Simulated scan of single mutants.
Amino acid sequence: MTSYLFDPPKVHSVPVKGEAGEYPINRIFCVGRNYAAHAAEMGGEVDREAPWYFLKSASAHVASGATVPYPPGTENFHYEMELALVLGAPVFRADQDAAMAAIYAYGCALDMTRRDRQQDGKDHRRPWDLGKDIENGAVMAPLTRAADWHPAGQRIHLEVDAEVKQDATLDDMVWNVAEIVSHLSQYYHLVPGDVILTGTPAGVGPVVAGDTITGGIDGLDPIELTLSDPE
């Protein structure tokens, strides 16, 4: 039996409706600029040749309903409302049919972002890690199994203190979920535990300590996050 010098990190997991066990998180892949209007508001364009990605650590996960401190190192902390999908089978070099068959469940997610640190990366042609891979920066609501819900143009929305900030439909995505999983599987041996956040609509913006973020996608459990004072 292997012994360790210190306790291994805890396993982050997400509840699944109708399941006694929770879904353990392995990796979190995030699709960049998957809504044309959001790409435009960020001063960029959609790459229509293929989707592209960045990653968040599993340790960035926090459950919906949490209250977390405003993070250090930023003065421009942004929300991004997203559809998350999670895999229930291995996927490698899959076509779109096989990619869809491997999706286990869907849920609401927030990709919280230090926008000023992300912009630093863009300006200096450096990685986005300080902007995107943030403690408490991958918020996930309970999941709904793919057998019980399918993406088909549902409304996706987000509010800050009950004021609507993002409001679109899943049909606005440039790359649909089958295309994303199939494409990503050309580069990785995807496995159960892998999470994919599929991009955010237009309307992103800053939040401050004391704000409560809520959001939803029709047919899925809603999401909520409250920000407290910085540590």
Results as ranks from 00 to 15, higher is better:
G18Q: 09
P151I: 07
L225R: 11
H12D: 03
Q186M: 12
S59R: 04
H124Q: 13
R114T: 01
G203Q: 05
V68F: 01
E45D: 14
D229A: 15
A58F: 02
A202Q: 09
A58S: 15
T67M: 03
A50D: 02
H157L: 04
E22A: 14
E49S: 14
A84H: 04
P230N: 13
S59V: 00
H189K: 11
T144Y: 11
L130F: 14
A50W: 08
V181H: 05
D211Y: 00
Y35K: 03
M140L: 15
P71A: 04
A102R: 04
G205Y: 08
T226Q: 11
I28L: 10
G121E: 07
G199N: 03
P71F: 06
N76P: 01
E231G: 13
F92Y: 10
D148Y: 15
I103A: 04
Y106M: 10
K10E: 12
W149A: 12
T113E: 02
D123Y: 07
A209R: 01
I103R: 01
V16G: 11
V139K: 04
D116P: 06
T2H: 07
V191F: 02
V62P: 00
A102Q: 05
A109D: 03
I217W: 10
V91R: 03
A60P: 05
V68Y: 01
A40N: 03
G131M: 12
R115H: 11
E163R: 13
E159D: 13
D161I: 02
A40E: 13
A94D: 06
L143M: 10
I134R: 08
A20Q: 13
I217E: 03
Y4I: 01
L170S: 07
S64A: 13
V91H: 06
I217A: 06
A37Y: 06
P222S: 12
R117P: 00
W128Y: 14
D211T: 01
A152I: 02
M112K: 00
A202T: 06
D172A: 15
G21M: 10
V160A: 02
I25M: 06
D97L: 07
N136M: 05
V208M: 14
P230D: 08
E224I: 00
A89L: 01
D133F: 10
D116E: 05
M1R: 07
P72D: 15
R33C: 04
G107F: 12
P222G: 15
H124A: 08
E82R: 14
V160G: 02
E159I: 01
P24E: 03
K132N: 07
G205M: 14
R125F: 02
F54Y: 15
